[in-house]
Simulated scan of single mutants.
Amino acid sequence: MSGVAYGSGRQALLEATVRIVAAQGLRGLTYRAVAAEAGVTHGSVRYHFGDRATLIEEALVYCVERSIKETELTSDLPGFDGFARGLVSLVVTDPDAQAFQYELMLEARRRPELRDTIRRVNESYRVATHQELARHGLDDPDLTDLVYAALDGLVFQQTAFADTTRTERAVEVLRQLLETYATARSA
């Protein structure tokens, strides 16, 4: 593994996979391309992941875990003041991770073998959203679906158009709506 610190090869391969798919779609994803992007030998890809499907799935899980954590869906602050606080910075800091996920989502329309993985990813985001809403007394699956769809749409818009001001304003309005709704339901 030239150029990559010992023990970081697996993460470098995951990050390389994300960058390649974000830039070129799945058609650009080859062992050689990933290895070159990561600065390792192409045998390392097969060693760490075995096959292309596992590489894609693990890169997706890697992105989801980081996204949920960095979006800060959960907050210890009272009310919804901290809800989705990191959403804009998440996309600004690593737009490839979001583009990678959207590329795979669209590819799942053409490749049925990806659908279950994409469903699990969406469910992970939906569960994280639900947990935060339920923490505030909004234990409503339909509301969860609506809020998740709004957040997903905002991430997509930020990823595609990079309009930070507009996205931040929209997140703030979403927080205000949730706060108003929670207050009305508890009254």
Rank of each mutant, 00 (worst) to 15 (best):
S186F: 00
I20S: 02
F100I: 04
T180H: 13
Y6A: 15
S186Q: 14
A182R: 08
R126Q: 06
A5F: 08
E70K: 07
H48A: 14
E58C: 08
T165Y: 11
R166T: 13
G28A: 02
A150Y: 04
Q131E: 15
A149Q: 13
S2Q: 10
L106P: 05
Q11N: 11
L138A: 04
F80Q: 01
T165M: 12
D163T: 14
V40L: 12
L29G: 03
E15H: 07
F80P: 01
Q101F: 14
T180L: 11
L55A: 09
R46G: 02
E65A: 12
A99K: 12
E57Y: 11
H136V: 06
D96W: 08
L14K: 05
L151E: 06
Y47S: 03
L138Q: 02
A38H: 06
Y181W: 09
E123Q: 15
Q157H: 14
E168R: 13
A33D: 06
A23T: 11
S2V: 09
E172V: 06
L104Y: 06
D145N: 15
Q176T: 08
A5G: 04
V21Q: 03
R119L: 12
C63N: 08
S75P: 00
G137C: 08
Q101V: 10
G25S: 05
L178M: 11
V18E: 04
A160G: 07
V21T: 02
A12S: 12
A187H: 11
D76P: 02
V121G: 02
A59I: 09
T129K: 00
G82Y: 00
